[in-house]
Amino acid sequence: MLGKYQFKAKQANRLLTAITLGIFTVMIAVVGLQMLARWVIGPLFGIYLPWTSSLSRLLLICLTFVGAAIASREREHVTVNLLMKYLSPRAARALAIAQSLLVIGFLVVLLHGAVAMYDLTVDRTFGALPTYPMLTNEWLYVYVIIGGILMLIYVLRDIVSALVGNEALLHSETKR
């Protein structure tokens, strides 16, 4: 029973990784395209692609929130972990749960705000981008919502592992 769910979670995780790597690759390609437009395509063919900087900005926003979810998954968020190593396992576990609850509090407010901002910005253009779906202003908040929900899921996972006593979590290294 449990094995089947673990398998699905693994697949979903892999899909998320693939999507994020995809966004990242396109983003870098667009920055390259911008220079190519200025130095090669523009002078030769008269096509200047002025939307490239808007698109790379939009992709970076998307990457920030979806990527932050991956950072939550990998516990790679920058953390100043001073106190944890001086605590007893029991106290450390309680503190880990407290941390997670605080993070959940923030995420709930963020999600609430993102839904409200979605309504407020519907159909507004973003920079020099056309009004295609996924490229207009309200979509920025869709990316926030997707990232926020994923982060919630990973924080809940952290709480569960703290409750069942996963030592690896409590002594995760300080990250840069």
Binding site: T20, L21, F24, G67, I70, A71
Partner: peptide, 16 residues
């Protein structure tokens, strides 16, 4: 590349 993506997001999320 994956490591780069995760570190990037961790940093830009702080900026945000």
């Amino acid at each position: 590349t994956y490591e780069g993506v995760v570190t990037t997001a961790a940093l830009t999320f702080i900026v945000a």
